[in-house]
Design a protein around this nucleic acid. Structure first.
Lengths: 354, 354
DNA sequence: TCCCTTCTGTGTATCGTTACACAGGTACAG
DNA sequence: CTGTACCTGTGTAACGATACACAGAAGGGA
């Protein structure tokens, strides 16, 4: 007697509801998915039977299998899952994604990523209708896994490689623009930025070095800052790049303090995030530096903490970008030409332009 | 010819992979789910065929249906989905949930909630293996929907009603404890707190009123604060409760400013969250009040912003509570006796006890 | 009266996978 | 040489739902 699986189930099936209601299973199905398709009387009998049996509605997995749609959007975040709730930028982006999901009645599934090589398998095991991939590195195997599923997918500010659409701003141009402000009348500028690759090593580079930078966001912003510096006639070697392993205020604070106490203290720090910038500000304040006279500081993203600190920063609407990504990944929109804008917000941590 | 559904599919099936590999479908299935079950040679042939066809692995919905498990944990947040990424406390809690999910390789699905009455339906339509429900009101119909699914579920700091296990701290005792600090030598104390019910009306109560409070968290904390006040021999009517519609710093600031400029300016404000407390601090500072001499302020949760502000607050580990909820909802643990602790963290926004 | 449309209910086949039982082969102990 | 255990591959029957086609009843116009 094959197929014996003793699934000791408590959950009633549609067939049982149909039997109790005295109708066919199809009528029950229609009562749930297309109520207009059944008579009011039949609908009432189905509802009564369902209530009596404690039937919670069509089994989601069975429905998904048959319909070919799940009703859920997958989100892939690099490295660690909890990052979604810890990094302010990721959170703002995801708030935009969730706005669209809520409006459409679509679930939002965070794919469990740990940084292990088996993560790719997890992408293919999760039941979703599309993927939004938060900025990652060019060589991330997860991108292949996402592409393999054949589901619609969008990368936010990520690599152009996989043939998947990419949504985001022109980071290089934006960095060049805020670099103008950050580096005005600077002689020993430093870029305080994100890791180069998934190795996340902490290091200090100079602008004449050209190590491979696998994170497109890091690469583009660094290139933009360097564009501005060298474009103003300075030598690349005098621009330094302090690579922070993670985007956290204490990282920025520690690295900035180290530099400010070093032999060539920076007189301008352009950070790739407001968190790193606020860390630098904290270090500078502790050391008694006058801002912006002795040190200019710029951030990136104009997060909630930037305005109270008077931080000059680069504003972009991550929330809108998240919403855009969600719409594309759900097939609600095909417009992937980014069209997202940014602007330099000048406050009090930078010296006025001459 | 019934059952014609033209699913124009690009995705290959297991059967096709089996045919190309020259094995039976079951061998393919085992190659994916129990690699030790097949010979190395067969596994290699399956893998080669899969690669050739672009087979991304077993179809998640089909696998879920057959196995009876989805590999995903559902999280239900009251009101609005984006709340998950906007409210710092929710984010910390969810970080704990996601820690467990990541370690177990389980997806984290946020149920799309909008506040509409049809939300309950959405709970039953999402494919998950269990639910974690973030603090909600006693009469929230979502609780019934969650219970109806028959899946394991846990409520965080929510109502005891539905027979579902509740995890959290003893809010009433905790409020009483921090109330001691907040109200020391106070004559016109105010509790700055969360809404009473899902209506979220803004209002000002006095301690002798007893309106129905549907949010257990609000109710317990309010009762705790009032316990302390009346326990010290004061009249309940002299304790006021400023009900803020949403947990946001600007709400706290606005309401606090209004009170501080009113006819009976408070000399102590005990807030139900650090956000509201920081808003109150901002208002007080703007008005030139000396903290804590002219006004004591306490918060709740000891979030990252509390320490820099010197805020006296009630610390609890939301992250651990989130992890605990996840473990229970996933059936990894049955210990639902809460066992979570809290402690009063005294900083500089309160007067020292006599 | 007849034909055509609309409304409502039902039977069938299928979505893609996996639990189970079984069969043939090999290995090894007695 | 026999019996038992293990390894590996396969066939069958579900998991629980829905797309589709069809059938009978009801309604309306010519």
């Amino acid at each position: 007697m094959p197929g014996v699986d003793d699934n000791s189930r408590a959950r009633p099936t549609m067939r049982e509801v149909a039997r109790v209601a005295g109708v066919s299973p199809m009528t029950v199905s229609y009562a749930y998915s297309q109520p207009a398709r059944v008579s009011a009387e039949a609908a009432a009998r189905v509802l009564a039977a369902a209530r009596q049996l404690g039937y919670p509605g069509p089994h989601p997995a069975a429905r998904s299998l048959r319909r070919g749609r799940v009703g859920t959007l997958g989100v892939v975040l690099g490295e660690r899952l909890s990052y979604a709730f810890e990094d302010p930028q990721a959170a703002r982006f995801l708030a935009g994604v969730s706005d669209v999901c809520a409006a459409e009645g679509i679930g939002l599934t965070l794919v469990p990523i740990t940084g292990a090589p088996t993560d790719a398998r997890r992408v293919t095991q999760v039941a979703v209708d599309g993927f939004v991939v938060w900025t990652t590195s060019d060589d991330d195997p997860i991108l292949d896994a996402v592409a393999d599923t054949g589901l619609p997918a969008v990368i936010h500010a990520g690599p152009q490689t996989g043939g998947l659409p990419v949504i985001g701003i022109d980071d290089r141009a934006a960095a060049a623009a805020i670099g103008e402000v950050a580096f005005a009348s600077a002689r020993r500028p430093v870029v305080l930025g994100f890791p180069l690759d998934r190795g996340r090593a902490r290091r200090l580079l100079t602008g004449d070095e050209d190590p491979p930078i696998r994170f497109p966001v890091t690469r583009h912003r660094w290139e933009g800052f360097r564009d501005t510096w060298t474009g103003a006639g300075h030598r690349a070697v005098h621009l330094r790049f302090a690579v922070c392993p993670v985007n956290h205020i204490t990282e920025g604070e520690t690295f900035a303090r180290e530099l400010l106490q070093g032999t060539e203290p920076p007189d301008a720090i352009a950070a790739m995030s407001d968190e790193l910038a606020l860390g630098a500000l904290r270090a500078a304040t502790d050391l008694g530096l006058r801002i912006p006279d002795e040190l200019s500081v710029t951030g990136w993203d104009d997060s909630d903490t930037a305005a109270p600190a008077g931080l000059t920063t680069l504003a972009q609407s991550l929330r809108e970008q998240g919403a855009h990504c969600a719409r594309v990944a759900l097939g609600l929109s095909t417009a992937t030409s980014t069209g997202h804008t940014w602007q330099v917000v000048i406050r009090t941590t930078t010296r006025p332009a001459r």
